[in-house]
Amino acid sequence: MLRFAFTRALSLALSLLVASVVIFAVIEVIPGDPAAYMLGLNASPEAVAALREQLGLDGNVAMRYLDWMGGMLTGDFGTSYTYKVPVAELVNQRLAVSVPLALYALVLSTLIALPIGIIAASARGSAADYGIMGATQLGIAVPNFWFAMLLVLIFAVTLRWFSAGGFPGWDAGFWVAMKALTLPAVALALPQASILARVMRSALIETLGQDYIRTARAKGLSRREATTRHALRNALIPVLTIIGLQFSFLLAGAIIIENVFYLPGLGRLIFQGITQRDLIVVESLVMLLVFAVILVTFLVDIAYAAADPRLRTKR
């Protein structure tokens, strides 16, 4: 198991290295002047030259890459061209919103999805199953910003239980901050939970048809015992895969929800970075997101191996 984790970690490091080269090459080396791009069409040649110097674009490519990587590793992501503050500072502020929001949504989605998926699979063909399947179909079909607006209308405008948007910061107190993240987390979680519940259901139905479930029943286990003791863990692999994909998406893909609720999250920062042509911000953020996705993949791999002993010896 340790060896498995070690080899996976090694391949994680390799993927990161490759990703960093690709990102660096796309943004800084491939023809086209980043400085000219950042300043737009009407920039004077003097301004472009000044920016080039400031960005260090005239130096040797290998040195620039090493500088950039070194900076990344020591937490120095450079200074944002538009915000005039260190990118690390910007990212930290945004991560303080995005990571808790993504985790919150993921926990909600899992807590909703797994039980209803299990109920639907265990009672296949029943009214409960049809009800759950219908509801999840709706959950997938309806866009999450519409859910978000509905939630705001009901819980903020009509009932006045939550505020309609904004984030007070963690300094305002843990529960106050969590409260501000609740509606966005629910809006993000519902479509994800719908997908996850359907995956859970079909994985469990497939597992329940396996020979070893029949063996378990022949040993004297009741239907419910056979499901909880034998089927669930075997059905987890596809579910873990989806959970991993969802976390990566929630981290950076929440931009619409962030906009609906006026949350200062990563998604909005990337969007602003791109529209304002702030390549320094974009470059660092993309690298950070790649890191996050690879890390999540690594954790999912470890979870696979924990769930299924057959995977520990392979690869």
Partner: peptide, 18 residues
């Protein structure tokens, strides 16, 4: 399992792999 035990044809799939 207590008074009647049973075994099946496919030993490769009859046991829980995890």
């Amino acid at each position: 399992g207590n008074r009647i035990g049973m075994i099946f044809q496919e030993p490769m799939t009859a046991l829980n792999p995890v």
